[in-house]
């Protein structure tokens, strides 16, 4: 696979305000990449820089080998885009917006566009200002997918969609991925990322703090392990066990609470050696993993992948 999105030390500052700092990552052609982060972390700034709407303060961004700032028209031929805040001429109907953007873009598969309209049960005869938020989002999705783009850049794509249409969206992403398209998707919705993405980038305070496969992130997650012993227990038993990051003794002195990373084999063996009577583990949800990355930290190292 070759990289369809490639950034190198991509930085955007707004005067004294931080935008994004030293973002370096690649998205491979054909993969689905989730971009996660709290509000104001820099997700939309990254996307708008990729689209050539914002000029990088430093570093570079390229799509399909084309520089996003100096070759925006060529870049735009490759992509389908759904902005985070989709606004348009309020007096146009959904059909007119789709026809208009189709004319500007060219190469639209009209049958496919119609099938998308029907698939999302969009009424194309209504004016944009008459649409609910969800229906506006459907217009946005139709126009983003209708020309079979090689790369889809979707900013909060399921925002405002009901669960049924969210499921339809997931199926659509799977379909286009099956046909070889790449999906770059920013989201707060972790279930959505698990559904649709193979890799995830986590951005916090403008910096990329983690880029990894979704399953690797899960593997990297920590376990909370509680071991109960028949007699008094000692935290020292586990301090040197590989993978144990922390250990604490319960007030009654018979239970140890361990924080473990990786596999549990060594912990189980050590527990058996000391006649453990019970062992329970709790797997933190993916959400907790992300929250750990989201939580403000004094100095998060930039990640290069």
């Amino acid at each position: 696979m070759s990289a369809i999105i490639e950034t190198a030390n991509l930085t955007k500052r707004y005067g004294r305000h931080r935008g994004i700092v030293d973002l370096t990552f690649q998205v491979q052609a054909g993969e689905s990449f989730g971009f996660l982060g709290p509000n104001g972390a820099g997700k939309t700034t990254t996307i708008r820089t990729l689209l050539g709407f914002l000029k990088p303060t430093a570093g570079s961004a390229a799509i399909a080998g084309l520089d996003c700032w100096t070759q925006p028209s060529e870049v735009h031929r490759v992509i389908g885009y759904l902005p985070g805040e989709f606004t348009f001429d309020p007096s146009l109907t959904g059909a007119q917006i789709i026809a208009y953007l189709g004319n500007l873009r060219g190469g639209v598969d009209q049958q496919y566009a119609l099938s998308l309209v029907e698939r999302f049960e969009l009424d194309p005869s209504r004016r944009f200002h008459e649409y609910s938020r969800g229906n506006k989002q459907k217009v946005g999705l139709v126009q983003a997918f209708m020309h079979h783009p090689r790369l889809l850049i979707l900013d909060e794509p399921t925002s405002g969609l009901d669960p049924l249409n969210q499921q339809e969206f997931y199926r659509l992403v799977a379909e286009v991925q099956g046909q070889g398209a790449t999906v770059f998707l920013s989201s707060h919705n972790l279930a959505e990322v698990e559904h649709t993405c193979q890799r995830v980038g986590i951005i916090r305070e403008g910096r990329l703090v983690k880029v990894d496969a979704v399953h690797t992130l899960k593997e990297l997650q920590h376990y909370e392990v509680e071991v109960t012993f028949a007699g008094p227990a000692s935290p020292d038993w586990f301090r040197r066990v590989p993978g144990v990051l922390g250990v604490s003794l319960s007030p009654e002195g018979h239970r140890l609470l361990l924080t473990v990373q990786g596999t549990l084999g060594d912990v189980v063996q050590e527990a058996a050696r000391h006649d453990a009577t019970n062992l329970t583990t709790r797997e933190p949800s993916l959400e907790e993993v992300f929250l750990r990355y989201y939580a403000p930290a004094p100095a998060a190292p930039a990640v290069t992948v």
Partner: peptide
């Protein structure tokens, strides 16, 4: 339109 951000999608098309 510029102030309201209504040009974002138009500018995202290949038209310079």
């Amino acid at each position: 339109d510029l102030d309201a951000g209504r040009l974002e999608l138009v500018v995202s098309t290949p038209a310079p």
